[in-house]
Design a binder for these strands. Structure first.
Length: 271
DNA sequence: CGTCAGGTAGCCA
DNA sequence: TGGCTACCTGAC
């Protein structure tokens, strides 16, 4: 019998499949998850997680199980729109990713569908990552900082124009540089990220929210923008700056969780 | 065939 | 500051 954790509320399915994280494979109700050089198996039955190949403490950190989700959901439950999303997806949590893996993954995501993003990241790992044997299969770890320094290899992963971003970023910042941002105020950290070539507000916020514990970060992509415009701004054209002001006032310090719920809700219930 | 996809930099008014 | 377009590439 594999090790287990009893936890509530938590939805492994929604947490993994809501688009914040790319390196997992689904087998029925169970998943193989990869992050950095780790590979583990996990599945949920009712309020219990069964897992293999990873420490329980890592799962608590990765899935933010130490966090009082009910409290956070009460904090962001400010209107009838998000209330529906919370009702439907309660248990969905942010994933605390590695900052380097997170930044690079979202650099690859620009103007690509989720399927394509996964292919590019997989190729990136195959080309630059460590080979790992696990349960008689070959897997690849995530490339470490400074390792993506061969332009020709980078061309071969199918990243298109994003390859140049990867190449530049690989030289400009490493994991410690990213972790150091945690000490800064949100706006300062965001400014440093957007100064990196290929990183705009959206990718900066993804990195801050999904890996650096800035829960007030609210990544604005085309889907969330359309949804906010339609449901919160009566269809008016809005600028990102207006959205950011409204969001931080309306949802407060856990706005990032609001983004997670609204985004997933609108993806599954297109308007 | 065109158009579009979970964005961004560069250019111009 | 604000609005537009090219950027690689594969999927429809």
């Amino acid at each position: 019998m594999s090790p287990r954790i009893k936890i509530y509320p938590f939805s492994l399915k929604n947490t993994l499949e809501c688009g914040q994280f790319f390196r997992f494979t689904k087998f029925g109700d169970s998943y193989i998850v990869q992050t950095l050089d780790k590979i583990f198996y996990i599945e949920q039955r009712n309020d219990t997680l069964y897992f293999e190949g990873v420490e329980e403490s890592f799962l608590f950190h990765f899935f933010r199980l130490e966090e009082d989700l009910d409290y956070i959901l009460r904090e962001i439950d400010r209107d009838n729109i998000i209330k529906k999303a919370i009702q439907e997806y309660r248990g969905m949590r942010l994933i605390r990713q590695d900052p380097w893996e997170c930044l690079i993954s979202f650099l690859c995501s620009q103007a690509k569908s989720i399927t394509q993003i996964r292919v590019v990241i997989e190729n990136l790992c195959k080309r630059f990552g460590k080979k790992i044997f696990w349960r008689n299969h070959i897997f690849y770890g995530f490339p470490e900082p400074q390792s993506m320094n061969d332009p020709l290899r980078l061309e071969s992963i199918g990243a298109g124009f994003r390859a140049n971003y990867l190449f530049q970023i690989n030289q400009c910042i490493d994991r410690n540089g990213l972790i150091a941002l945690k000490q800064l105020p949100y706006q300062d950290a965001k400014k440093i990220l957007t100064n990196l070539f290929g990183v705009g507000g959206k990718i900066a916020d993804c990195t801050l929210l999904y890996s650096l514990d800035f829960l007030q970060a609210f990544p604005i992509d085309t889907w969330i923008k359309k949804g906010l415009q339609k449901r919160y701004f009566r269809g008016e054209i809005i600028r990102n700056k207006e959205i950011e002001e409204f969001i931080s006032k309306h949802f407060g310090p856990y706005a990032g969780y609001a983004q997670l719920y609204l985004y997933h809700f609108w993806r599954n219930h297109p308007f």
